[in-house]
Structure formats: structure tokens, C-alpha cells
Design a protein around this nucleic acid. Structure first.
Length: 581
DNA sequence: ATGGGTCCT
DNA sequence: AGGACCC
């Protein structure tokens, strides 16, 4: 009996309507970030270029027929006045992406990133809390409704998805007000449908899908390639079976499909074709790898390889310091020139590296570690390429993997920083300390300059923030609905929302590198350096998903601005958090 | 294509 | 280490 029951649940899974998933997709993300960096570009046709490819463009440019993934030359021909900005360096995009994800985590801990510009949020819990505490609330849908709604499902999903659409609306409002970013959203009962319905109204709009509209949505897809999960290779195989439309995929014999694709994939695609998807929203944690790549026309000398790798490594060290973990392995990847191949073939080699490289002694930190890493990189390169013969590379990449999370002592500076200082402040703080160590060379890097110089702090309208008082216990449901009805009233000062928004600031725009690292005592210097290379998971320690413990500290930047550094150092040394003032 | 990432085999 | 997938 019980087995039968479980099986019924299993076979239903993926098509049951018990969850509420929101998919958010930032409009032409790279172009938006560039327009926030330089608002004069807003009214002009703007394209973001990587090498000879236009990776995205704003909606002004789209009116000229310019599209994503066009050759730059083609785009220029369509729109001679097109402004082009380089987008090979993803640093600013990554920063904004992080802030978007942090903002969404206020609504649910279940936030999954897909690339830099998309997030899935499972808001099932928040919807349930809202329905419980607000059973008489209005049940209107925010934004568009996709397709049919004449027949209503009786499982309760109508009310849940309505509330989901209201949450999505609030998410988009906050993304716009706090970060300046416009997004599309899709609301549905699984990930597949939320994502598919998201793109039915663009830009800066949202759409909710109810069960009655599912069939239309699926059948209106152009071909099987539009299904997330069917890529280049699988669609070619399907094509060879005579399958190109969703309807054909729905109707093909399962055993025939299994023969071509294997059981696992065949069964998944069959379900996807009718809009069933049982994938859970998996919270995105720290990355499994951090890497940089550079593509080019031709490299055929070992010295060029070494130069390229050195530049990549230098930029990579900054990303590594910001991440805070210590990598256990390094990987080198190359792409060889191959005129006969239509498919870009890569080869890679990796090796373990000693963690001692990242536990620096002050002053000797980097030239040593840097050289050893570069030596490892070149060894790996020689495993792939026999330099006694001519070679022709079109890409080089370096990546760190196998990260270890390091636990820190309770009395350490790291422990203090992680507990009481906002995320971005810690990052800036690392950079300050790195500036003081000659070998790191952060200040000579393009990226290091960006962090203290350019303001990604676009949407910060706040003046000085007073010390927040402990907020009364509020449920998440109270929080998001409350802030929706009265936009920024007095009691919002105490809402988790407000606390988080101060954490979400990227930088104050005030130069902060006057702090003289070398004047600190040796002991403090050493502990700081260690701290910077060993910060444990910041989001975990900061309790970002736990809005019942607001962050009551000043940011470290505020300390730098109001006080000369002396007082801060004293506090750090005595292991006391900043005092309220 | 570009400059990233993911997971599975 | 490569291959599929995602953006």
C-alpha cells in the first residue's frame, strides 16, 4: 500500500503544482551594467563587444535590427552610430550579479544562479507564510498571465501562483530601486516553465503561468532546441530521427528515443516536452572553479604563452583573494588552431598545488607564490604542447579548483571580520592590505583600480545611515508585503531590507587606499594577510538567509572615513566589534 | 564565436 | 580529461 502511494507521488513529480518558482532574467545584462556605469549611453545604441562578437546590446540598438551574437562588423553595418564597449573583462558584471543574488536571498535561501544574469528562486515557503497570515488578501496577478486561465486547477495552485506573482513584482521593484537593474520574471510551478514563461514578455515585464496555459506554452516553442537541456549535440541527434518540433518530441515512441539517447536523457526529454520538470532549485554556493580565459588569433611562441599566462594569473589572484578560499589544484586549458573543425576542441591538464603557497609570510608572499604557480602552469602547458614542433594556439585559460574551506579560530581577525563586517567591505579591506604588499601588484591591475575608483554603487540613494535598533520579530511574509504597501516609511528603517541594502553597496566611491599598511605592527600585518587569504564562506557566516539577525555594525569603510585607521586597528587588535556611536 | 560556469561519464 | 549542457 505504502509503496503504491510513494510511486504515485513519484510519477506525479514534475507535474504536480505544489511549488512556486520565480525565474528572474536581467534585461541585456552587460549592456545594462555599462549604462549604469555611464548613464550618457542610455539614449544611444550600445553594444557590448567581446573580441569580434557583439555579445549583447541595449534596446535602442535593437531598434536598428542589431541582435545578440552578431559579428561586430554586421552590427556596425546595420547601425553605423552603434557605440561599442569592450566586455571581455567580466569583473563589473560579476559584482552586479553577486548583488542581485544577495538581494534575492532576502526572499528565500533557495536561490540558484544560471550564468551571471539569471536566478531561480523557490518561494514556496514564503508563499505559504503569506497565505497563512494574509488569508483575506487580494488574489490579483501582478503582470501578464500566459495563455488560458478559464479552467482553474483545484489544488490551490491558483492562489499560490498569484502570491508568487506579487513576490516576483516586489523582487523586480527592489532590484530596480536598490541596484538600478531591470529584469523580466517568470512565475510557475517548476523551473522549466518559470524559465520558459519568463521570456514571453520582454523587456522589464513579468508573466505568470497557470496549469491551463502549459500546453500552449510548450507547443508554441519553435523547436526542440528551445528546451533548456537540449543543446547542440542532442538536437542534432533528434534531427537525425526526424524530430524538430516539440510536438514531435511529445509523440515519439519512448523506446526509440532511449535507443538514440539512453534511458536517462530520453525520459527527461519526454517529460520536458510536456512541461514536466522535477529539478529542485539548488542554492548556488561558492564556485567549484575560478578561472580566466583569453582567446586570440594566434600564439606560436613559448614566450608569448608565458606572458599571457602571467597576465591571466595576476588577474586571477585578485579573484582568488576575494573568494577567500585556498585552491588545491590549478588547471591550464588550450585550444589549438584547427581549420577543419567546426567544433571548438579544448585540451586541459591540471595538477595539485600546495596550500602553503597561500599562507604568506608578509613581504615574501607573492613573488614567490606567483613564480611557483607560473612554473606549474608552464609545466602543465608542456604536457599538452610539444614545443619542439610548431604549434598554433587560439586560446589559453588558467583556473583554480579543488577549494578547501578553512576554519578560523574564534579569536582571529577573520572571525571578527566575517561576523561583523559587510561582505563588500571585507573585499575592499582585502584590497587595501594587498596594496601594502609589493609583490601582489594589485594596484597595477586594471581590476584593482576599478574597485576603489569606479562606482558600481549606482542606485545608492541613501544618506548617512543611523545605527539600526534591533528589529521586532517579523516574518518574511510581513517583510515583503509591508515594504510593498508603504514604500520606505519610517518603520522600514528597521526592516531586514534596509540592513541588507547597506550590505549590498559595492563601494562608497571614496578612495580608501591611503591606509598605510606598513605602519601596522608586524603581528597585525601578518594576521591580516592570513585573514585575507582564508576567509570562510561569507554568506554562511553572515547569515544572509537569516533575516532575524540583522547586521548591526558599521561597515569598515565608514570606519575608515570617520576615523583615521588607528581606532579600528585597536578594535581589531582587542578583538572587539565596532562600538555603537 | 566569447568568457565564463555546471555536472556527468 | 573530455564532453555535454547553461548563460
Amino acid at each position: 500500500m505504502e509503496d503504491d502511494f510513494d510511486q504515485t507521488l513519484d510519477s506525479n513529480y514534475g507535474s504536480s503544482h505544489d511549488k512556486v518558482i520565480v525565474h528572474l532574467d536581467a534585461d541585456c545584462f552587460y549592456a545594462q551594467v555599462e549604462m549604469l556605469k555611464n548613464p550618457e549611453l542610455r539614449t544611444l545604441p550600445l553594444g557590448v563587444q567581446q573580441k569580434n562578437l557583439l555579445v549583447t546590446c541595449n534596446y535602442v540598438a535593437r531598434q536598428f535590427g542589431v541582435k545578440k551574437c552578431m559579428l561586430v562588423s554586421d552590427a556596425k553595418r546595420l547601425c553605423p552610430s552603434l557605440i561599442l564597449v569592450k566586455g571581455e573583462d567580466l569583473y563589473d558584471y560579476r559584482q552586479m550579479s553577486t548583488k542581485m543574488t544577495l538581494l534575492l536571498q532576502k526572499f528565500s535561501p533557495l536561490v540558484e544562479k544560471l550564468g551571471l544574469d539569471e536566478n531561480f528562486v523557490d518561494v514556496t515557503q514564503l508563499v505559504a507564510e503569506t497565505l497563512k497570515s494574509d488569508f483575506a488578501g487580494s488574489r490579483n496577478v501582478e503582470g501578464h498571465i500566459y495563455g488560458d486561465i478559464t479552467s482553474r486547477c483545484d489544488c490551490g495552485c491558483y492562489e499560490r501562483l498569484c502570491v508568487g506573482s506579487q513576490i516576483a513584482s516586489e523582487m523586480r521593484k527592489q532590484l530596480k530601486e536598490e541596484l538600478g537593474v531591470t529584469c523580466c520574471a517568470g512565475v510557475a510551478y517548476n523551473k522549466l516553465l518559470a524559465k520558459l514563461v519568463c521570456s514571453t514578455h520582454k523587456p522589464n515585464q513579468q508573466t505568470t503561468l497557470f496549469p491551463a496555459g502549459v500546453s500552449d506554452l510548450m507547443l508554441n516553442l519553435n523547436n526542440v532546441r528551445s528546451l533548456p537541456g537540449i543543446g547542440h549535440r542532442t538536437s542534432e541527434i533528434l534531427q537525425s530521427l526526424g524530430i524538430s518540433s516539440i510536438e514531435q518530441l511529445q509523440n515519439i515512441n519512448l523506446e526509440l528515443l532511449e535507443h538514440a539517447l539512453g534511458r536517462t536523457l530520453a525520459e527527461r526529454l519526454k517529460k520536458l516536452s510536456v512541461g514536466a520538470d522535477d529539478m529542485v532549485v539548488k542554492p548556488t554556493g561558492k564556485p567549484q572553479s575560478i578561472g580566466l580565459e583569453d582567446g586570440f588569433r594566434k600564439i606560436s611562441l613559448e614566450s608569448e604563452v608565458k606572458d599571457k599566462c602571467e597576465v591571466l594569473l595576476q588577474r586571477l589572484m585578485i579573484l582568488l583573494a576575494e573568494d577567500g578560499r585556498i585552491p588545491g589544484a590549478i588547471r591550464v586549458t588550450v585550444r589549438k588552431y584547427d581549420n577543419s573543425s567546426r567544433y571548438s576542441h579544448r585540451e586541459s591538464r591540471q595538477c595539485n598545488i600546495p596550500s602553503s603557497l597561500f599562507l604568506p609570510k608578509v613581504g615574501t608572499l607573492s613573488s614567490n607564490a606567483h613564480n611557483k604557480l607560473l612554473t606549474s602552469i608552464m609545466k602543465l602547458f608542456h604536457k599538452i604542447i610539444d614545443i619542439s614542433k610548431p604549434f598554433h594556439l587560439t586560446l589559453l585559460g588558467v583556473a583554480f579548483t579543488k577549494f578547501q574551506e578553512r576554519n578560523t579560530g574564534k579569536g582571529s581577525i577573520t572571525s571578527f571580520l566575517v561576523k561583523d563586517i559587510s561582505v563588500q567591505s571585507v573585499m575592499n579591506f582585502q584590497n587595501i592590505s594587498l596594496h601594502g604588499v609589493e609583490a601582489m601588484e594589485c594596484s597595477s591591475s586594471k581590476n584593482a583600480g576599478k574597485q576603489s575608483g569606479s562606482t558600481l554603487n549606482y542606485a545608492d540613494k541613501s544618506g548617512s545611515e543611523s545605527e539600526p535598533e534591533p528589529s521586532p520579530k517579523k516574518t518574511r511574509a510581513d517583510f515583503w508585503r509591508g515594504s510593498r504597501k508603504r514604500s520606505l516609511t519610517e518603520s522600514d528603517k528597521d526592516s531586514p531590507n534596509k540592513h541588507r541594502s547597506s550590505e549590498l553597496r559595492l563601494s562608497t566611491g571614496e578612495p580608501i587606499n591611503e591606509v598605510d599598511f606598513s605602519k601596522l605592527s608586524d603581528g597585525i600585518q601578518e594576521e591580516l594577510m592570513e585573514s585575507c587569504m582564508s576567509l570562510p564562506s561569507l554568506t554562511d557566516k553572515l547569515g544572509i538567509s537569516d533575516n532575524s539577525t540583522p547586521n548591526t555594525s558599521m561597515s569598515i569603510e565608514d570606519n575608515f572615513q570617520t576615523n583615521a585607521s588607528q581606532k579600528l586597528w585597536k578594535r581589531l587588535g582587542s578583538n572587539q566589534g565596532p562600538q555603537d556611536q
